[in-house]
Simulated assay, not measured.
Amino acid sequence: MPFITNTKAKEQVDIFYEDYGNGQPVILIHGWPLSRKSWEQQVWKIVEEGYRCISYDRRGFGTSSSPWDDYDYSALASDLNAIIEELELKDAIIVGFSMGGGEVVRYLTEYGPSRIAKAALISSIIPLVKKKSDNPDGVPEDALEGIIDALQKDRVGFLKEFSKGFYNFDENEGERISQAQLDYDFTIASFASPRATIQTALAWMHTDFRPELENVTVPTLIVHGDADATVPIETSAKQAHDGIKYSTLEVIKGAPHGLNVTHPDELNEILISFLKK
């Protein structure tokens, strides 16, 4: 199985990745609390359209190793950098879903755009999740603390219910999402490192990327659903679009947070069009 070792990490980390196709490289960064497997409906399309598609498991998730510490965004971006350097990638397109948008922005902040041609933020948490005086529509602190408390007391119980909101399950059951998909997601999420699940949640909850948006200087696609109840569009995509100079915002009507699963055709059409521009 292919692993890339981040030897520059404080504690050695082995990152599992899959690498298919040829052509310009497209790197897919998954959301919380899943793995590279969440990109199932995008990988085949990207490869079919003539690109090289690389997806990987964030440290602590999927098949990658699980250090005890170092789950802040700088550590996570260093894993992305290790993949880019080890595979000697150039002219790459980095695509971050939900939490994965943070790796995109932090990578460009700390490593620059010399190896990156474009970026995409899909249902991304960028730029800030938490409610503050200057971010009044963010998630209140007590709600975020409630998530951490639930993860500490009954992690698998919380995860069992979490993906229902991810997909607006009550509205989309049978048409856009199946119970089997929820069960699949639960299996993936429940086998992630408990420590990593909590530590990465703290990272996406509390990291303020607003000062870093100016570092995103490559053409950037932002895709969000206007029915996203997990990461509302007003606090994320619209602010990101305002703060990223060379960005394009595409809104998928009626789409929830997990639009990569519920609206794959719509997302794929938008994403492939962006890759080809």
Rank of each mutant, 00 (worst) to 15 (best):
T5L: 10
N6A: 11
E11N: 09
Q12E: 14
V13Q: 05
Y17F: 10
E18S: 10
Y20N: 06
Y20W: 11
G21P: 09
G23H: 07
G23R: 03
L28R: 02
H30T: 01
H30Y: 04
W32S: 08
P33I: 13
P33G: 14
L34C: 03
S38G: 10
E48Y: 06
E48I: 04
D57F: 14
R58M: 14
R58L: 15
G60L: 12
G62Q: 03
S66H: 14
S66I: 00
W68K: 14
D70R: 12
Y71L: 02
L76S: 12
L76H: 14
D79M: 07
N81L: 06
A82F: 11
E86H: 12
E86T: 15
L87G: 06
K90L: 09
K90G: 11
I93V: 15
I94C: 15
V95M: 07
S98F: 03
S98E: 04
S98Y: 03
M99R: 05
G100H: 05
E103V: 04
V104L: 05
R106I: 10
Y107T: 00
L108I: 03
T109N: 11
E110P: 02
G112Q: 15
A117V: 00
S123E: 12
I126Q: 05
L128T: 01
V129L: 15
D134E: 13
G138D: 07
E141H: 07
A143K: 11
A143T: 12
E145D: 11
I148F: 07
I148C: 05
A150N: 07
L151H: 03
Q152A: 06
V156N: 14
V156G: 00
G157Y: 09
L159M: 05
K160N: 12
E161W: 04
K164T: 05
F166Q: 06
F169R: 12
D170H: 12
E171Q: 14
E171Y: 13
E173M: 14
S178L: 01
S178I: 01
Q179A: 08
Q179V: 04
A180Y: 04
L182V: 00
D183R: 07
F186N: 09
I188K: 01
I188T: 01
A189M: 13
A192R: 02
S193H: 10
I198R: 00
I198L: 02
I198V: 03
A201D: 08
L202D: 02
A203Q: 01
W204M: 12
M205Q: 14
T207G: 01
D208I: 10
R210M: 13
E212I: 00
E212Q: 15
N215T: 06
V216G: 02
V216C: 05
T217R: 12
T217N: 07
T217G: 04
T220N: 04
L221C: 06
I222S: 10
I222V: 13
H224N: 10
G225V: 13
V231F: 15
P232R: 05
P232E: 06
T235S: 13
K238I: 13
Q239V: 13
D242K: 14
S247Y: 04
L249T: 12
L249C: 13
V251W: 08
I252M: 08
P256T: 07
P256W: 10
P256L: 08
P256G: 09
G258W: 02
N260L: 15
V261Q: 00
D265P: 04
E266V: 04
E266R: 05
F274Q: 11
L275K: 01
K276W: 03
K276A: 07
